[in-house]
Design a protein around this nucleic acid. Structure first.
Lengths: 249, 249
DNA sequence: GCCCCATTGTTTCGTTCGCAATGCTGCTAC
DNA sequence: GTAGCAGCATTGCGAACGAAACAATGGGGC
């Protein structure tokens, strides 16, 4: 049941490590059912199992970040997947929403080509025959499994696509979206040069936080896909920079 | 014990799927010990565990191919690792011996940079802080997790290194080494253009077999690292093409 | 020659796991 | 309305599992 999945993820993300039996009791189901649920979540890369426990994956990994706000992220990913044409080619950056977008596309059965700098995403949709992945070269970031550095730009220049999908970790009023890692932020810019439109995927909770590196997507057509929890003041702030908004619900 | 590891691998590779208890009995150890061994092998990516069973990984994956002739391959990888300088940069292709070479370097503690077209290798040495990985871009081959296609050449051109390490699946007298996959063979040639020497890593069993795509490494200095099971007639055949031989033992 | 420490394998114990049979709920067709 | 069906969840059982404490082995160092 989809509802229980999100409850499980909420508990696991807040407590990092939970006994399976305890989890079963708290949600009022048997341990057998709980193990089945957890196995399904593990197959999707959202939790890690150990004998008797369910744990959060390393939060530096994309896998760990996926579990936070999973319900919203999937909603956003699903909405974004809808605007990708069958037979199309898109660029995708390495954020957790982006990984879910790739997964949604893989499950949709659409034939798509995904150009990405995330080795995690390449692996995440490895089972899907309808998805062709082109991986951009670069220096491999150990934790995040993302390619960064000058080679990303060299590779990205070989392409030109309609849309680049990116994640973000915050928003600064009057400045725009931000990213905590300067190497990854630079990779985003490299990829943005090879796309006519940038689609930013992020939960509404990210508004009100920000980190140090503005993405500086000025001069590009930018669209935001987020959930409907975004407040009207932030919505105005986004629109003021000429960014289109698309709410998933 | 290292000896038992190879015995386990021999059994698992020949039978694909074995009960843990049966395996323990056949090698004369307790089930607890056997499980400990299998867990260690799983951590190295050589087998896959299931409740009660040990199975071979998908043989299309590098993980599965690793298990075949593991002892010889590791010997070869260890010998090859010895010729890599501390602080050096090498190129590595996607074969299973190459993956073991990367693993040996990771465990050696040497500071090295590995330029590769194998996302599997990047992930395989992800834990090692002493290894920096540069991943070459390209079309991601689902099964093998290897990048191929024209982007590999574009990326490889950005570098020039002393040594490129490659695997092979066969040898044709008078022609040279071969590879079954034409995309991967082309990737090897692309990478070879950016290296002054090509070091081929392969078990001696591969001599006597061959597949359809010659690697055509003519014009390069080529060295073969193999195990001491190579017959004198094959040795002569190799030397006749001006290829140096280095036997691990 | 002897001791000490490290490694490797074993035993035991309580817990968790996978599986198959069974029970429960909600749905559709008639 | 109800018969039949399909999808979840539960129960019960034997096998497998992880942890930890214990025994055997096997080299150095003095």
């Amino acid at each position: 049941m989809a509802k229980r999945d999100t409850q499980i993820l909420e508990i696991v993300t807040s407590e990092k490590k939970v006994e399976v039996a305890q989890l079963a009791e708290r949600l009022g189901v048997s341990t057998v059912t709980m193990r089945k649920d957890l196995d399904a979540l593990q197959a999707r890369g959202l939790v890690v199992r150990e004998h008797g426990y369910a744990m959060l994956a390393n939060p530096n990994d994309v896998g760990g970040r996926l579990a936070y706000h999973f319900a919203e992220k999937r909603l956003i990913a699903r909405r974004a997947a809808a605007i990708v044409a069958d037979g199309g080619t898109i660029m995708v950056e390495s954020g957790s929403c982006c990984a879910l977008l790739a997964r949604e596309l893989a499950d949709s059965g659409k034939t798509v080509t995904i150009i990405t700098n995330s080795a995690f995403i390449a692996n995440y949709v490895r089972d899907a025959a309808n998805v062709t992945v082109v991986l951009l070269g670069g220096t491999y970031q150990r934790d995040s499994q993302v390619m960064v550095g000058p080679l990303v730009r060299t590779c990205a220049q070989e392409f030109y696509v309609d849309q680049l999908f990116v994640g973000t970790d915050g928003w600064i009023d009057g400045v725009g979206f931000t990213n905590a890692d300067q190497m990854r932020a630079d990779a985003v810019r490299s990829m943005a040069e090879a796309a006519s439109e940038v689609v930013v995927l992020t939960e509404s909770e990210k508004f009100g936080h920000h980190s140090a590196m503005p993405l500086r997507l000025t001069g590009k057509r930018v669209t935001l896909v987020t959930d409907d929890g975004i407040g009207s003041e932030w919505r105005a702030s986004v629109e003021r920079l000429g960014i289109g908004i698309c709410c998933a619900s």
